[in-house]
Design a protein around this nucleic acid. Structure first.
Lengths: 221, 221
DNA sequence: GTCTATATATGGATAGAC
DNA sequence: GTCTATCCATATATAGAC
């Protein structure tokens, strides 16, 4: 019993001490896995890469997360959660459509600036993982996200004459395209336009205003 | 000598007969490889998948293309060539900016409709393949593609007051984003909006006009 | 919990018969 | 040119010592 108590105490201490600084092994693994998966995807990632990145060895990965697929599942769910739910907090509330759209664009581009590889990771895994386990779990969760609120919001704004007539899915596509595509196509575009890293970063930041204005000029009556 | 002659004759016959119908083994392999690589990327594709898809066996793949990397290189170059050079034929010529933009959007969306997985393949491989051989070969070729003509075209249109002031790279990003993103994000968007395959296809076709009008409303003085 | 060593599976590539 | 059989490197996963 003494041993058990000590074990629990130690674990509790580790949690308190480590979780603050994200230095727990589990957290180190998750951070490392995120970096590797984001850049190489499920198929391209190697457990060895993740272990190296975390400064541990492969065996420990399997100790914490039983398999590569398991670890990937966790990372994907986190990523998808980071990318999508922001939607709900903005639309379906009171306020002028223009304000909500500006807020949405700002939140979305900020999210991508903080996680530049996230959009490509999520969209990439949804292509290749059509049959994989990925789809099952999150398809269910996704159906109940409040995307209908956005569609309804757009529909209402059109009906009130607040914006020019447009199909809600088309506008949603346009907005997300303008926000996320620059991050997805960065390797191509930076090369095409012969821009340095700082130059492209600057361009990305400028898009918060650029995109919002571009859209609003187009849909304002 | 008789045997050599016969061999050449046979080869010539095969070329004439098969190339017409794309039934040559080499062509079957390329078509199969394209389908598999487009969906799974270099890392996710399996030589066995390609062999199955082509109706042959793995050994024959290596007979025609020495390695997986080789085969991938060919497919990537073709894909990149399909995606990019269209640019040159439109910009840098005479005509109203509005006409050129409509033409560009039309060509680009038509290309993607004909090759729905191509955009994601090219952009995906450019992310993961940052260090790979992929970049070397095409980086050189790309520098000399006439993207400066587009930038110049936009710059001139702004200066003439034909369109509202905008940074050329920003407009280029907006245009390509609106054209290509719907294909890249299809798995996500179709689910979000609970659309059937035919419904989403219809939406994609509608974007030829949708996108052009959306852009022009925004940049017209 | 963390390590080293090893088992097992997968997949790219080759050898050799036809 | 095309096949079957096989080699060999790589990568996931486990066993067992500390």
């Amino acid at each position: 019993m003494g041993i058990v108590l000590q074990t629990l105490l130690t674990k509790w201490l580790n949690q308190v001490v480590n979780k603050e600084k994200d230095f727990s092994t589990e957290q180190k693994i998750l951070d490392a896995a995120r970096r590797v998966f984001f850049q190489k995807g499920m198929a391209g990632a190697r457990m060895q890469d993740i272990a190296d990145e975390a400064g541990i060895n492969k065996a420990l990965l399997h100790y914490y997360f039983r398999s590569k697929e398991n670890l990937h599942e966790v990372i994907f769910q986190q990523a998808f959660g980071t990318m999508m739910p922001k939607v709900a907090e903005i639309f379906g509330k009171e306020g002028a459509f223009e304000d909500k759209l500006r807020a949405f664009v700002d939140v979305y581009i900020s999210m991508a600036l903080a996680n530049p590889f996230l959009p490509m990771f999520v969209l990439g895994e949804m292509h290749s993982g059509a049959d994989s386990i990925v789809k099952k779990h999150f398809l269910a969760n996704m159906q109940q996200l409040p995307f209908h609120k956005i569609r309804q919001d757009i529909h209402d704004a059109v009906k009130r004459g607040e914006i020019l007539p447009i199909e809600p899915p088309q506008l949603m596509l346009n907005v997300m395209a303008l926000c996320l595509f620059p991050f997805i196509a960065r390797p191509l575009f930076q090369t095409i336009n012969q821009l340095t890293d700082p130059q492209y970063d600057k361009l990305l930041k400028a898009r918060k205003k650029e995109v919002a204005n571009f859209i609003l000029r187009s849909i304002r009556p």
